[in-house]
């Protein structure tokens, strides 16, 4: 070693080295893939919920509002526990057979839980984006003979999405950080890996600072990509 470390410092450094590879594995194999999959699924749910929220049908509006209210009104960790630990018991309760467990793989439970979350939060963002588009756009689309679906699809959504991108970028960053909760439902993601090493080496400060640094690097890269994407979407709008 180039540095002259005392034995405590050496121990901390060794722990960090020991933790790094498992953490990176947790990041690459779980945290990032789960984030990407849930973000896409979540956006699909969000779009559907946003369209339901602005629909003329009271029933559709009610369903969407109820869903959003439940997700936003309960802690995500509780939702994840219900899905992962609770749903298997549905089999037992519904079929009156204690052997009948509808077990979900941790990753599947994680994807369901996070997608529902992204769906609820992003739907409010997309709805805001849709509402921000002037009424004249809808009228112009109608005036050339478009129906509701064509108007939403070709005129309103492309503009609403552009307005929503900055806020959706924040949702994406939150999502990456929220994957740190998935260790509690046994997904071997980055933070869980960090905890495992921390609890055997007792180097809490080092390990948790290291994991914080890794989340930060990932988020930093994403925010750079997001900036590029935003300026790409802005092209041609400024005269």
């Amino acid at each position: 070693m180039f540095l002259n470390l005392n034995s405590e410092q050496q121990h901390a450094l060794d722990a960090a080295g020991q933790a790094f590879m498992p953490m990176l594995e947790g990041l690459v194999k779980f945290s990032i893939p789960i984030t990407l999959v849930t973000f896409v699924l979540g956006l699909v749910i969000a779009l559907a919920a946003a369209l339901m929220r602005i629909s003329t049908s009271r029933i559709l509006r009610g369903i969407a509002r109820f869903y959003i209210s439940i997700i936003r009104g309960t802690p995500m960790i509780v939702q994840l526990f219900i899905i992962f630990y609770g749903i298997p018991e549905l089999g037992r309760l519904l079929t009156n057979n204690s052997e009948n467990q509808w077990t979900l793989a941790p990753v599947i439970a994680a994807i369901i839980g996070l997608s529902l979350n992204v769906g609820a939060y992003a739907s409010e963002i997309i709805r805001g984006g849709i509402m921000s588009i002037p009424k004249g756009q809808t009228e112009a689309a109608y005036s050339i003979g478009m129906n509701y679906r064509q108007t939403i699809q070709r005129i309103i959504l492309p503009q609403a999405i552009r307005v929503s991108v900055p806020a959706l970028g924040n949702t994406f960053l939150s999502l990456i950080k929220d994957t740190s909760l998935l260790g509690f439902i046994l997904v071997a993601e980055m933070f869980r890996k960090a905890q495992e090493v921390a609890s055997t080496t007792y180097e809490y400060l080092t390990i948790y600072l290291l994991v914080a640094l890794m989340y930060w690097v990932v988020c930093f890269i994403i925010s750079i990509v997001q900036n590029f994407y935003e300026s790409y979407l802005e092209r041609g709008y400024r005269s």
């Binding site: 002037p134 004249g136 756009q137 009228e139 112009a140 689309a141 109608y142 005036s143 050339i144 003979g145 129906n147 005129i155 492309p158 503009q159 552009r162 041609g236 709008y237």
Partner: peptide, 21 residues
């Protein structure tokens, strides 16, 4: 929609689609 397709409308504030050329 059927009636609307008989006529063309020009608005005070143009209402062009800003995301299109």
């Amino acid at each position: 929609i059927k009636v609307r397709r008989q006529s063309g409308m020009v608005f005070q504030s143009y209402n062009l689609f800003p995301h299109k050329t």
